[in-house]
């Protein structure tokens, strides 16, 4: 008699602990979601050229701009270390200048993140340039074959605001 009662009580205690934990975790999840949502602006690593259009950012502010290096936009000065290129997200673009060594993966049509200051609405002075690679992996021959056959659709995976080259 006491045995079965005791068993029942521990079982009730256990299910109570389950509910307490579930409730606690739900609250924790909600709180985290709210905090992350509120902090969105500081968690975002870079702005797209379209984001820049929507915000007013002063020239003193150090920011990062990300997007794709527009095809045919990369110009190198004679000194070899001064670069100029256009960052695009498909809708808007901004020209960036950079004096320094670019990462190996810096390429036209590939993702890039430039850190620096806005000179004006059209020009960005980069002090640091990072290359952003996409999530597609394939052998060179396959990439060449795809390009040749016209099935090249690199954008299929890039759902991010880094946008797609067209």
């Amino acid at each position: 008699m006491t045995d079965s009662l005791g068993l029942k009580r521990t079982r009730r205690q256990k299910s109570q602990r389950v509910y307490t934990l579930l409730f606690g975790l739900t609250m924790l999840g909600l709180a985290t979601a709210l905090v992350l949502n509120a902090l969105e602006d500081s968690i975002v690593f870079f702005y797209s050229p379209s984001d820049l259009r929507e915000r007013s950012i002063s020239p003193e502010q150090r920011i990062r701009v990300g997007g794709l290096v527009e095809l045919g936009s990369w110009k190198k000065a004679k000194s070899q270390t001064v670069h100029e290129f256009t960052v695009t997200d498909g809708k808007n673009k901004i020209t960036a200048t950079f004096n320094g060594i670019l990462p190996d993966l810096f390429r036209e049509g590939q993702g890039v993140i430039a850190e620096g200051r806005l000179k004006n609405n059209r020009l960005f002075i980069a002090e640091e340039v990072l290359a952003k690679h996409d999530e597609n992996y394939m052998p060179r021959e396959v990439a060449d074959a795809l390009k040749k056959s016209g099935h090249w659709n690199k954008g299929s995976g890039s759902r991010r605001s880094s946008g797609e080259p067209k």
Binding site: L36, E40, I43, V44, F45, F46, Y47, S48, G66, G111, I113, L130, K132, H133, D134, E135, N136, Y137, S156, G157, S158, R159, R160, S161, S162
Partner: peptide, 16 residues
């Protein structure tokens, strides 16, 4: 997926 990051999105576990 939620934020702009330097790290690229998932390559293997994706819907498509």
């Amino acid at each position: 997926d939620w934020w702009n990051t330097l790290h690229q999105p998932a390559s293997v576990f994706r819907l498509d």
